[in-house]
Amino acid sequence: MRLIHNPTKKSWTFLSAVQQFLFLSINVLLKHFKRRLGRNEGRQNIPIPTNKNIHYGEHFAIVSPITRKHFIDKEKEKKRKETEKMMKLEQQ
């Protein structure tokens, strides 16, 4: 039957449909095989996020992020202070 009617279904789907329509007429089974499948809508669109107004109230703090430059400058300042300290000790 599969070779004669060439249904578009997969083998497993074909066998389960044959079991399901075993006691019904052959025309109902053939109609089931020829029915059009649902149309694929494709990839779902990602919704564009809207800007949210954030209410900064009493319990919020706005903190600026610390950058890499901050840490580099901090290390340079630390070294500079150490060298100044060493210079003062040598002068005394």
Rank of each mutant, 00 (worst) to 15 (best):
M1V: 15
M1C: 08
R2G: 14
R2W: 02
H5P: 07
N6T: 06
T8W: 13
K9F: 12
S11A: 11
S11H: 12
T13F: 06
T13R: 11
S16K: 08
A17S: 11
Q19A: 07
Q20A: 04
Q20H: 06
F21I: 01
F21V: 01
L22M: 10
L24A: 06
S25M: 02
L29E: 00
H32K: 01
F33C: 01
R35V: 14
R36T: 14
N40T: 15
G42D: 02
R43V: 10
R43C: 13
Q44F: 13
N45M: 12
I48G: 10
I48L: 13
P49V: 02
N51F: 14
N51Q: 15
N51K: 15
K52T: 05
N53H: 08
N53W: 07
Y56Q: 06
G57Q: 02
E58L: 10
E58I: 09
F60K: 10
A61Y: 04
I62W: 01
V63T: 03
T67N: 06
T67R: 02
R68I: 14
H70G: 01
I72P: 00
I72C: 00
D73Q: 06
E75G: 05
K76R: 11
K78C: 00
R80T: 02
E82S: 05
T83D: 12
T83R: 13
E84S: 01
K85D: 09
M86P: 02
M86K: 06
M87L: 14
L89A: 11
E90V: 04
E90F: 10
E90A: 11
Q91S: 10
Q92V: 11
Q92N: 09
